[in-house]
Amino acid sequence: MATQARRAAARLMISPAVILLLCWMIVPLAMTLYFSFLRYNLLMPGTEAWTGLTNYRYFLTDPAFFEALGNTLTLVGGVLVITVVGGILLGLLLDQPFRGQGIVRILVIAPFFVMPTVSALVWKNMFMNPVNGLFAHVAKFLGLAPYDFLTQAPLASIIAIVSWQWLPFATLILLTALQSLDREQLEAAEMDGAGALSRFIFIMLPHLGRAITVVILIQTIFLLSVFAEILVTTNGGPGTASTNLTYLIYAQSLLQFDVGGGSAGGVVAIILANIVAIFLMRMIGKNLET
């Protein structure tokens, strides 16, 4: 019973959200794109000039760009592998009946609610610090030399911190998916003589396929923009050893005040993120049909 007036009202009510998001998307994007063709440094106001593709040429041939790109991929890939594999294992474990299921669930999900700056600082100081960190104490106890995690292996350490934050998310989603699995199917397979491993490979894994895809895609979006963890722990260093694309662009624009170069980097980041986004949209779009 959709009358003319009702349809008009519907359109009217949806418009604030649409207009706001449209502005939020178009205005800054257009500005970024425009700045990326300018020579524009905040320290030298009044010297803005059109430079064509110069910013892109500098940004894309900068060795720091390739290192940041590599670091970004390592960070995203490393965290994805750890959280998905860990999430499946933990999901399988927590799906079993045991005493105190509710409490353990609460313990496992907790890191997801810790703000990034807190988890980065806690890991950096209280665990990874080579003198006073808990790991250093343990190393001393075992008679080993303490290891300076954030200097010796900055990227790996950041991967560990970020994985700790995202493991709960992966676990929770995979556990939710496991719980919707038809128990009778598993029992039937068991009665037909399927071992635990083949039950996992042929029944559980296909059932989890969609949840795993969702975990990978959603995490990728967030992981491409990891920022606070790097800012707080290593500042991208030593050198650019733990600089990802987000941090590189931040440093270029707000630390070196190079608006033009930073904008060119921003455009590159947007293009890369879009490649990921296309896959995610297709996936969620398919879900919308059902």
């Binding site: 800054p28 970024t32 979006i221 980041a269 990921v276 969620i284």
Partner: peptide, 15 residues
């Protein structure tokens, strides 16, 4: 609307 969420924040940081 969902796609706007996928815009990397650093891409629009400067503006």
């Amino acid at each position: 609307m969902l796609s706007t969420k996928m815009l990397p924040p650093v891409g629009v940081l400067i503006p």
